[in-house]
Amino acid sequence: MNRRRASVLLFCLLTAVAGCRKQPSAPPSPADRAYDVEADWNDPQRMISLGYRAAQGKRIFYTQCVWCHADATPAGPSNRSNVTPTPPLMNDGATLNKETDPTLRNAIALGGSALGKSAMMPPYGRTLTDEEITDLIAYIRAIAQPLYQPPAQPAAGAAGK
């Protein structure tokens, strides 16, 4: 009788110890696992998680591109209204989602005139490295509204090479 009670007690104790050890921790939210975040331009409450690449793209965007491709800039008024035709906002998914990665790469590297568009978009191929342009495209894709859907085929184009 005594033995039985002891074994029951031991069992309870072991379960309790095991229970202590394997305490499931709450899974971190996506933003907690992101290298950086960016508030959705249309909905500042929504945080978009950026991976390492897109986070680097964000930095390049805010140094080079923000002046003409956003309505608010770190230095105040935007230059967007001085440029004709008006350049697309960088989160304008309706315009940019349909462009493939290579097209965006060409637009950034070679400038508007090389694509038969406005010469007011200068070429950045000699200013930014290939890698930086890849980062920038990753950022553009991440902040797009409506959301960007990568092409169905996981082709080599996704890697940008």
């Binding site: 002046w67 003409c68 008024p77 230059n79 001085n82 440029v83 010469a119 978009m121």
Partner: peptide, 19 residues
């Protein structure tokens, strides 16, 4: 003014950009 359109970013007189 035409080929490179520098006025996108620079102002001369009262017209042009302010990047």
């Amino acid at each position: 003014e035409v080929k490179y359109q520098c006025q996108a970013c620079h102002t001369i007189g009262s017209t042009g950009g302010y990047v």
